[in-house]
Computed example of a mutant assay.
Amino acid sequence: MNLNESGHGFQAGDIVYVIYRNPHTQNVANVQSAAVVHDPDNPEALSIFLYDTYYPLNDEVAVYASETEAEEAYQYYFGDALEG
């Protein structure tokens, strides 16, 4: 279940899964766990903390409740075995 589409809320401390593209090699993507945290620049907002970086938690980010759901989405969109 893509949490953004389902309307489920997030709470700081939740562990979620995203499909992450390697910024150095754009043709490499994988499913990665991430933490939902309070945005350090705006404590009222939530962010995703992934690879020591904060990413805005908004409708542009597909976030999944389980690794299995994220892997299924990966297969749907990319059709290849997971990299990494």
Results as ranks from 00 to 15, higher is better:
Y51T: 04
G9H: 03
E44G: 11
N42I: 00
Y54G: 02
D41L: 15
M1T: 05
N42V: 11
T68R: 08
Q26S: 12
L46T: 13
Y17C: 00
F78R: 06
N2Y: 00
Q32M: 14
I19F: 04
V31S: 01
A70E: 02
V28S: 01
N22H: 15
P23N: 12
E60K: 15
L57Y: 13
D39C: 13
F10W: 06
N4H: 01
P23M: 11
D41G: 13
T25Q: 11
I19H: 05
A29L: 10
M1G: 14
H38M: 05
E71S: 05
A45W: 11
E5R: 06
V31I: 12
T53H: 14
A45S: 15
Y74W: 02
E67Y: 05
E72L: 10
V36E: 08
A35Q: 09
V18R: 03
A81G: 03
V63K: 01
N4S: 06
Y54Q: 08
L57R: 09
V37I: 12
R21V: 14
A12Q: 06
R21H: 09
G79R: 00
A29K: 14
A12L: 02
E69Q: 13
S66F: 04
E44K: 15
A65Q: 09
I15W: 03
D59H: 12
F10M: 07
A65P: 00
I48E: 04
E69R: 06
Y20K: 10
L3T: 04
Q26C: 08
R21Y: 12
E60C: 14
L57V: 06
I15M: 05
A62K: 05
L3D: 02
R21M: 11
I19V: 08
E69S: 14
E83V: 02
R21T: 15
G84Y: 11
G84N: 12
E83C: 05
L50K: 07
V28Q: 09
S66C: 01
P40R: 07
N4P: 00
V31D: 04
V18P: 02
H8I: 04
F78S: 02
R21I: 04
V18D: 02
E83H: 01
T68L: 06
I19L: 02
V18W: 12
H8Q: 14
N2G: 06
V61A: 11
N58G: 14
I19W: 07
S66H: 01
A12W: 03
A65I: 03
H24M: 09
Q32K: 13
S33V: 00
I15Y: 07
I48S: 03
V37W: 04
E83M: 10
Q11C: 14
F78N: 04
S47G: 14
F49Q: 10
N2V: 01
Q11M: 12
V36K: 04
Y64F: 15
H24S: 05
F10K: 00
F49E: 09
V37E: 14
S6F: 01
V31W: 02
G84M: 00
